[in-house]
Nucleic acid binder design. Structure first.
Lengths: 175, 175
DNA sequence: ATCATTTGTAATTGATCGATCACTAATCTA
DNA sequence: TAGATTAGTGATCGATCAATTACAAATGAT
């Protein structure tokens, strides 16, 4: 039997590098050489782990959605009803601060037409929506579907505000 | 004095073609040859009107934002107060149906880091926000800043719903 | 009708990039 | 320590693309 060693998490390192490079430069303009450089390996070595650049994008998006689900699930399992929505917003804010690149990548991927990528994005949004809506229903919140829509909508505007560095887009206190 | 002729709107034709091709394929992956083909001209001829591909993108975005402003202004100048928000939503829905590609291009451009493009996007969002908020204030609507945020947020989610073909994302009627 | 301007294209170029191939260095097994 | 497997790289290649150049055809003015 064979034993692997070296960097046991090479694959994860490459994915992390890809998330950053894709987010900064744009998936199509970003090169596999940039990703490799960021991961501290040579460009051809990337292809030992991912057959194509698109495979790498798909995995980067999966990682990003998994983190999103986990963040929301953590809140849903622990938060008390009256603070549920507030804490979900808090969790997303923290996600955006700690994993900005993953959110920027999700934003990009919304307009990528490749069926495989579009499928991942659709599933990501569907699952997020289900997670939040079920939690609102279980918490006995009124108009759960409406509240879920508003929650997701604020999230999308929050993304725009972050990506374009336009914090005023999220101001809502009237004097 | 020289007189021009041929197609007096060649430039507009190229921009229209660019909006579609960029929206379908993604700006970075789209080629100037595709844009030229869509416009019915040769690839080098594009560069008689736009010095660089980025110039073409900038103009495409300007056209798209101008149309957005015009759509909202039309409603604001004519709508009666109680129906203002409803009609603004209607105007945006129509814009998305009639000029889907322009909206998809705006979505894409949210994550393009080139300073010139980011500047156009920032200005577009700032102006849209000002337009809507001032209209809400003039209409005497309560919490105008909050209502403006919710309006813009719904617009962003609506974009996602359209781009990913996920109509359920905009459902909000509870049974 | 000729000359100048404008409209447009074919051909090309220099750069870039994803992916492959051929190879070496390190590590493991027996 | 020999042999085999694994980890990793340099070199390269075919394709692609934005942009330039050098032209040709049409149009307009005199």
């Amino acid at each position: 039997m064979a034993r692997k060693a070296a960097s046991p998490n090479r694959k994860e390192e490459i994915v992390s590098a890809a998330v950053e490079v894709f987010a900064e430069t744009g998936y199509y303009r970003a090169t596999t050489a940039q990703v490799a450089g960021r991961a501290g390996i040579s460009q051809p070595y990337v292809f030992r782990f991912f057959a194509t650049k698109e495979d790498l994008l798909a995995e980067a998006l999966n990682v990003s959605w998994t983190r999103t689900f986990d963040a929301f699930r953590g809140v849903i399992e622990s938060a008390e009803t009256p603070k549920l929505e507030e804490e979900l917003i808090g969790a997303y804010t923290e996600l955006m601060e700690r994993h900005r690149s993953e959110i920027l990548l999700q934003m990009q991927a919304q307009t990528i037409a490749e069926p495989r990528i579009a499928g991942i994005m659709r599933e990501g949004f569907r699952e997020t929506r289900k997670l939040v809506q079920d939690a609102f229903v279980r918490a006995g919140i009124d108009n759960p579907k409406h509240r879920t829509l508003i929650f997701l909508a604020r999230g999308m505007l929050c993304n725009t505000s972050m990506a374009l560095d336009l914090p005023e887009l999220m101001e809502e206190e009237d004097v």
